[in-house]
Design a binder for these strands. Structure first.
Lengths: 201, 201, 201, 201
DNA sequence: AATGAATGAGGCTTCATTCAT
DNA sequence: TATGAATGAAGCCTCATTCAT
């Protein structure tokens, strides 16, 4: 327990932080308990002590990450802020989250096909219908281009998340270095916002 | 070796077809050799006989898939067809490929982080610079909106691929059934093309 | 796979034989898979190959032993032989079985309290009621002392099995060597038969 | 340490009482320290604090039980009471002890085979030879049937202990419920005494 | 006396791979 | 080409024990 980056006072939370990093940031979804323990600077069996099993640690980290993301997004789309502001916040959150944990969504997708459905039924109320209606109203008002509101959302999500996700592949495909690709990514927000609110009106 | 869907005369190719299906279509990236062998209706050790190791089979299926995709895309972007036609072909290919093998990109991403970089350097000539230049020319001509050409490409790729990739998650997030979500997906091409070639000019 | 005492042609059966010996004859109920594999001269994982798990090997050996014993006893008590002969056969079987596998019954008793009930419901027909009736008839005829038939059976079982079971303890308690105790055991059949058929009539 | 049935003032003795119950009465010979601690309502590590190790607790409970049993039996067989009375006391003790702790003998037997011989050499003087001689005298006097005195003793022990030990198995074998079997057991003393002192003389 | 945290020993299982036909 | 048998590597988990208050 030497090289801890977080406080020594809460080993349990420290282990989860390290696991999150390994799973979601580094994308090593199959990291062994030994690797996680080593990265956390603790004895391997301590994972069992705190979480009973690798799967339990897994699920806990996973569920908490999902819950965190859901809360951030849902609170943004259901806020009382004006539409324009809401959308910018949503883009910021998406870019922020995907940058911090680029492999989390991928992780979910792969896990779903390994075992039974891991996605817990969402218990909180669903803010999407009213938000989609709000989008529709903006379209009717001519603020944003008319289309299926769900397509509008999917497009924004896609443009925010996918290029970051694909960094290793697309830099390769385009024959540029990962660093050069990252440079391109850093400037994308303006481009995305230009889609969210077209300027030519 | 009873219920083979491909010809008995080429067991090796049959195994690869089955593996492709399991890895890229079903998304079971961690499928064991036993599972692949069972699905192919062959003895487990035959995989070693033909491919030396699980990793070798893996790599082979993987490399061929990458090569296939690259060829289709590069031939589309470097064809002599007019730009408008080229772009539509590109979108068609992307939608087509991702629909057939929705997990292939995910597969690549996750694998990259498990071992050393698996991406072999592309040996064929690089058509992207000239295609990006072509895009730039169209922008200058006012046919398509002005932006970084690479953003234009990334956006199109994103909108084509990502929503299909995320089907299990986003249907869940939006609280609609997977079938309802699929319905939305089926109609997306027009929406994407509206981004590729904005109609309001 | 060198020092096999049974035939090399059937490793699976050989492993079971060794397991039976360790469990039921030597009484090492907690023997590890490694110990069993070592005793059988095979690789530890071969146990998994043949039996899937330690528990499965366990259960198989166990069930077969029980079935074997049950068959021997039930066929003896339901035979057409005269009563006197039947009883002698029964005593012979009990002495024989307990001598070969002295820890089997103990094994059962201890296991019952570890997990769910391991005793499978007996599927074959129940010969005991008619045998108990036959005993009753003999008692009425004065051939054997009158008592509850079930007590008669329990006493015989007890006298056959228990002293052999308790060898390590009773030799100790009585302050004689295990060998001396064994000597006493060897002569017990006549004494037991004297209970089964008292001579003083 | 809440729901203790024994006094709070002596946790050490309390733990032993609980352990005795689990080992000898419930027959859970492989109970973990956690299970014992839970049953005793104390922290797991307290077992180590008081007894150094699980084995030490084990041995202590074991030795004390053996000593207790030995004392009761030896005091009965070496008392000054008349032979008839002595024998009845012996049977009472055996039935009483085995009823309270039916798994103690089994416990001993199984443990002997796990490690080195756990049976400590008895330090008290050996009353058995004189008792066996007393039995011999009774036989000569015709009070009891003539046989090897040691067989007489073994038979009595067997008839007292074994049927109780085997309750789970024999009720199953005879296809009666455990409760029905228990009914039979309750009436056995008279039957045993009829063996100890045959009435037909 | 008591406890939460941490650790090491030891066991079981899965899996890809190799061996021997 | 195909297969059953056998093996080693690597992982996970349980448990008793020890450490530090």
């Amino acid at each position: 327990m030497s090289n801890m980056s977080t406080l020594n006072t809460n080993t349990e939370e420290h282990i989860k932080t390290v696991a999150r990093q390994i799973f979601f940031a580094e994308g090593r979804l199959n990291a062994t308990t030994q690797e996680i323990a080593d990265a956390a600077g603790v004895n391997r069996t301590l994972l069992n002590y705190y979480f009973r099993s690798r799967d339990a640690l897994f699920d806990q980290v996973f569920d908490e990450a999902m819950q965190h993301l859901r809360h951030r997004i849902e609170s943004s789309i259901s806020s009382a802020a004006p539409f324009r502001e809401k959308m910018e916040t949503l883009v910021d959150i998406l870019l922020d989250e995907i940058t911090q944990y680029p492999y989390r969504e991928i992780f979910i997708i792969t896990q779903i096909n390994q075992k039974e459905n891991k996605l817990k039924p969402p218990t909180d109320k669903n803010n999407w219908p009213s938000f989609l209606a709000e989008i529709k109203k903006e379209m009717d008002a001519g603020t944003i281009p008319t289309m299926e509101p769900i397509d509008y959302i999917l497009n924004i999500y896609s443009m925010c998340i996918f290029p970051i996700l694909m960094k290793p592949i697309y830099s390769h495909m385009l024959r540029i270095t990962v660093d050069e690709y990252q440079e391109k990514l850093n400037d994308r927000k303006a481009n995305i916002m230009a889609y969210v609110f077209p300027q030519n009106k």
